[in-house]
């Protein structure tokens, strides 16, 4: 099956100048974990996920901690998050992104998402955003396919 049958044809996106605090607001309001970043023509130039924002706000030494449980509260994290809130998303967005075309097969998309540890990825036509594909939607579709009579 082609991915255009499963994809979400939603064009919600950020621009490179969107601030991180605005990006957080849009992510929460739209209840998604990540959004494509597009230019004025709708061309995909990056992708920002909540994971990227968390990573940017964590103190530099965090990666070196074996066990973060002794950190008393999220005070430092909050301070850094507020500090980077005015930064544009272009500063932290992933610029080398995985994207798909509407003609890609669902199997190819599933494998690529798993390999790259991605939950969501943009679908493009001539570089222009036409929708997004979600891992959860693919899972649901694969689950339903097993039950379809054509497999019996």
């Amino acid at each position: 099956m082609r991915i255009c049958e499963v994809m979400d044809r939603d064009l919600t996106a950020l621009s490179a100048e969107t601030t991180l605090s605005e990006a957080i607001e849009i992510l929460t309001r739209h209840r998604v974990s990540g959004l494509p970043v597009v230019d004025g023509a709708g061309r995909v130039v990056g992708f920002v996920s909540e994971k990227d924002i968390v990573k940017a706000a964590l103190p530099g030494y965090f990666d070196y901690l074996q066990d973060p449980s002794f950190i008393p509260d999220y005070g430092q994290f909050q301070k850094r998050l507020k500090k980077i809130g005015k930064d544009p998303v272009s500063k932290i967005m992933a610029k080398e992104i995985v994207s798909f075309s509407e003609e890609d097969s669902d199997f190819y998309v599933a494998i690529t998402l798993i390999r790259n540890h991605l939950k969501r990825a943009p679908v493009v036509r001539d570089g222009i955003l036409v929708g997004v594909v979600n891992r959860a939607d693919l899972l649901e579709r694969i689950m339903l396919e097993e039950e379809s009579p054509s497999f019996a």
């Binding site: 979400d8 939603d10 036409v130």
Partner: peptide, 19 residues
Amino acid sequence: EYVRDVLRKAQITTNFLHV
């Protein structure tokens, strides 16, 4: 969410701003 969901199931492209 409901409106978006119906449009999504109908495979209509959406670009709504959620407020």
